[in-house]
Amino acid sequence: MDKSTIVCKCEEINIDEIETALKAGACQFDDIKRLTRCGMGPCQSKVCTNMVREIIAAYTGEPMEHIEYPKNRMPIKITRLGVLVANQETSSVVSVFKESVSEVDTNG
């Protein structure tokens, strides 16, 4: 493996880019992710997790079991947005428009 070897196939991130993030002070998978997009693609780091953890372990000298995993989030598997549409009367989502005009009413 040389430094140009691709680790994150979804986002095409190589070893060199991961090491650059580590040199900038990144300590965890998610630190590297936010700087490089490593693990942000369609597979959501399912493929690259351990390869990235190994690079972190080699760089920091910490044993593998001390290297954190990336944070998992819903959905576990890619899901059509339409399937999730709820049909509730009330919504936890706020309308930016309504919020702004209520300010006009009270403060205007």
């Binding site: 693609g41 369609p42 959501q44 989030r73 819903m74 959905p75 890619i78 899901t79 059509r80 947005l81 339409g82 999730l84 549409v85």
Partner: peptide, 9 residues
């Protein structure tokens, strides 16, 4: 967007 795939929240 109903047909778009969600990858993360």
């Amino acid at each position: 967007l109903a047909n778009a795939n969600l990858v993360r929240s």
